[in-house]
Amino acid sequence: MIMGIASGKGGTGKTTVAVSLAAAMGEKVNLLDCDVEEPNAHLFLKTQHKESKIVKVMIPKVDEELCNGCGECSSFCQYNAIITPGPKPVVFAELCHGCGGCALVCPKKAISETQKRIGTIEISEGDDITLIQGKLDIGVAMAPPLIRSVKAHLNSHDVSIIDSPPGTSCPVITAIRGCDFVLLVTEPTPFGLNDLKLAVDMVRNLGVNFGVIVNRHGIGDNRIHDFCKANGISILLEIPDDREIAEAYSRGESVVEALPHYRRAFEGLASSIRGMLLNRGE
């Protein structure tokens, strides 16, 4: 079972939910921190470092002896990572998504591929939680290839939780594609609703089952509830706007660990998701 935690708006509580849900599952869980530009789940977990891996992508290398400057590589590349403004192509590695298409279309076989480091994966283990964290190198703009490498650690017989980056762009889609269920975390504010609508469109496009979590319930107004009701979307959990939660967060403690009275709510969330997936014949 793979559960994704996403949100249109940033700072709504994805990591708070991911860490607490992981602790409330009552069995071994893999937590994949796919927010590779700013991974932070490790701050709330007491896991021991086990393994580090370097992640590389393939980028093109042009043999200028073989190249006839035809520009086929440049017309193929949708990312403008290889262009032919003069007699020979110029490669912009930081724009390259590593698809290898330029090498395939080159009629002179002048393009080979070479590796470029983009980040690391850190694996650490706790009692029930294995944290697999992607960490993009500073200055690297290409999150999706690293997210795919983190997701290569998924396997179908484990329970896995994916903490996604915020937003609705490529890194988020890379993170939540293939999830059995996605939790969209939002807050009852105009920004929260606006970005929730974008996130709902995204998950519906991807055809993934989803439900909503309202964090900081009690601030703002009823607009999230009204929207969900009108669109047939289940609100699976309301987390109150509680100063104690913010204090626990600032100390680097998960909600269920610092405030045991919230544990039951997250256990309830875990069982609702399990129930929904069973009903859908998963």
Binding site: T84, V90, L95
Partner: peptide
């Protein structure tokens, strides 16, 4: 989405320009 500058450079080259006059030009 990305690479507008390099794509524009390629375009200007294909138009046969020897000289470019513009406001600003970035590194790529």
């Amino acid at each position: 989405a990305q690479g507008a500058g390099v794509q524009a450079a390629e375009k200007v080259a294909k138009l046969g320009a020897d000289i470019l006059i513009t406001g600003h030009c970035g590194p790529k």
